[in-house]
Design a protein around this nucleic acid. Sequence first.
DNA 1: CGTGCCTTTGACCAAAGGGTCAAAAGTAAT
DNA 2: ATTACTTTTGACCCTTTGGTCAAAGGCACG
Lengths: 206, 206
Amino acid sequence: MNQPVARTRIQRKNIRLISDAALSVFSTYGFRGATVDQIAKEANLSKPNLLYYFPTKEAIHRHLLSTLMDTWLDPLRDMDPDGEPLEEILTYLRRKLQMSRDHPRESRLFANEIVQGAPHILDLLATDLKALVDDKAATLTRWMDEGRINRTDPHHLIFSIWSLTQHYADFEVQVGAVLGPEKPDPYPEAEAYLTTLFTRMLTPDA
Amino acid sequence: MNQPVARTRIQRKNIRLISDAALSVFSTYGFRGATVDQIAKEANLSKPNLLYYFPTKEAIHRHLLSTLMDTWLDPLRDMDPDGEPLEEILTYLRRKLQMSRDHPRESRLFANEIVQGAPHILDLLATDLKALVDDKAATLTRWMDEGRINRTDPHHLIFSIWSLTQHYADFEVQVGAVLGPEKPDPYPEAEAYLTTLFTRMLTPDA
DNA sequence: CGTGCCTTTGACCAAAGGGTCAAAAGTAAT
DNA sequence: ATTACTTTTGACCCTTTGGTCAAAGGCACG
């Protein structure tokens, strides 16, 4: 059971339980701050039972990160070079925002990992992620060359979409504290604000 | 030595050493992931010696957070209700970006704290920070009423400045990995990009 | 129902962690 | 040089933590 390639029904169920529990715990405390006991308790398993499915704490963490990495980048991957530029970018923006709303723990897992120096995925960032971003940046540059969106730095454009959307998941408690209890769901306003922001930024000058 | 009110030269020196070391360690591993031994080693002190100045690990962390909180909010506090709106906002933006560049560890300390649910400062966020933001949001709203900047959601405008600027400190390794080693300093481009972004967003339509 | 495999667990271990303490080593002012 | 005070340290303690192991308890299938 070194890599969790689930064969039986029980395995599938428990690996799902553990992954979910670990996601909660790692995203709340970071890798070093999380404990195996805590994950086990959250999953309603005994610690040795948990370690029967994943040999080490690191293996659980690795499993989560690699499972999530792909999902996380899908929206960017799906940005269509042949689509209508502004529409493609706004769709990307909205999908990212939707991911913050629907999967805040996943977002915070990555946030923890990266804030802490990305010790477990630094190589992936410098290879896979860089390649994808460079590719999409080239598409953005072409759109700018064609005069279909305003000229600007494509990499920083992408960074800005990341930071703005992930902020609502990663800094959820701060957003909640500042907006106060009478505004429990900031996402509708966020979407309107961000749509305007990028529309104004990118719509070609007359 | 319950609260570090430095009296002697040695105390001042060691409290400075400890604070600096603790900043590095807490900002890299989060509160629970950090160890007292590690902070002590980083400060070139023995563990008992460190604990002579701060009674507990929590006390060091509290000391850092409360010391930094004020500094951190100064740029927003300084946004002048009687100034030129766009200029005030862009100055705020640039000062925040400068803080990310000059004090990335401080930024990551807060990022860790807030990503992990802000257990130690949640009350401050809901009181002091909320009050300050609400106050400045009112100023922004007035500027919009006066037609001096475009109308938009003032709270989300502030959130966007936070997220965009802090991104460069908090996600430093990711930015570095994506831009690659030949672009070691992203800040000039970031400043140009963000200036354009907010200028386009806020300059009143003709 | 018996056999063989999968799953679960209580007991245990060594290392690391936060923190204490009494005694030693400095420091400063007389 | 003495005195009174501050600073530093080695040794120690208890708890938490990541991980092991052998034995017990299920489960499926002929």
